[in-house]
Computed example of a mutant assay.
Amino acid sequence: MNYRFITIEGNIGAGKTTLAHMLAQHFNAKLILEEFADNPFLPKFYEKPQQYAFPLELFFMAERYKQLKDMLQTQDLFSNLVISDYLFVKSLLFAKINLLEEEYNLYQKLFDIINPQLVQPDLLIFLNAPVTQLQANIKKRNRSYEQQIEDDYLLRVHNMYTQYLKQHPVRTLMIDTTKIDFLANPADFQRILDALEKEYEVGINYL
């Protein structure tokens, strides 16, 4: 496999972290996981979105930047595989959904300063899941602050990712999670492993 830095993305509850763990274990890769539990504004945001959206997104961006910068600087990308369960640009995408226009404009200026300093992934794996499946996964993992997430919010997140992938040249492997159950079916996980042996063009490629 020629990819040295793989990022997994998708909506809330799509299975990003699960797949990242499985791939990292299979390839004995360095694993970078989003530390969402350390964000003190996350439970408050779900209770009062407008009040806590800006500090929430600033905290996420700062933590993601520090984590990626620290880990990728100490990693030889030419000899060791790195797998992450988030794309740094998700900071900007969620900010677009959650922030007021004036807040977002300021946030984008900060993002534009930080983003060029980071190594971009060789391949993005995007887990595409319908809202019904996302809600089932959210309920199953039972994080208290997530239980009130509405379908409309998940649809907005989906549309934001879709728009981004259509407009930006990212080498993407799109996986329909209604057709592939990589956690329960070893054959489906093997399909993903086989797919990672292939070379893909920049843009959206479907498994």
Rank of each mutant, 00 (worst) to 15 (best):
L68T: 08
L87N: 01
L33P: 06
K139M: 08
L33A: 08
F36N: 12
L127Q: 06
P116C: 10
F27Y: 15
F94H: 09
K140F: 01
N28A: 11
A129C: 11
Y145A: 01
K140V: 02
V131F: 11
A24I: 03
V82W: 05
N28T: 10
A136T: 12
Q25K: 15
Y107A: 03
L81F: 03
V131P: 08
M22Q: 15
F45S: 02
L56C: 08
T74H: 06
E57S: 04
D112L: 13
E146V: 00
F59A: 01
Q147S: 06
K140N: 15
A129H: 02
I125V: 14
A129V: 05
F78K: 13
K96A: 10
N28F: 04
A136I: 01
L93C: 11
F94G: 04
Q135V: 11
K90M: 04
L123M: 11
P55E: 10
Q25E: 15
V89S: 07
V82M: 03
Q67W: 05
I125Y: 00
Y65R: 08
H26M: 07
Q25D: 13
Q25N: 14
Q135F: 06
F126V: 00
K96S: 08
Q75Y: 05
K48F: 00
L81A: 02
M22V: 09
L58A: 06
L77M: 12
F54R: 09
F94V: 06
F36W: 12
L118P: 13
P43V: 10
T74F: 02
L33D: 05
N137P: 04
D70L: 03
Q108L: 07
S79E: 14
R141K: 12
F78G: 13
L124D: 01
L81W: 09
D85T: 07
E47V: 12
D38A: 11
Q135T: 11
Q117K: 15
F78Y: 08
K109P: 02
K30E: 15
L72W: 06
F41N: 06
Q108W: 01
A53H: 07
Y104F: 14
A37C: 10
Y46A: 01
L92D: 02
Y104C: 04
L42D: 06
H21A: 10
H26F: 11
L118Y: 12
M61T: 04
L106W: 07
H21I: 09
L99W: 01
Q73F: 09
S84N: 09
L92H: 05
K69D: 12
Y86A: 00
Q50C: 00
M71I: 11
A29Y: 14
Q75V: 02
Q75T: 15
I113E: 12
K90T: 12
I83G: 05
D38Q: 13
N137Q: 09
E63G: 04
T132G: 07
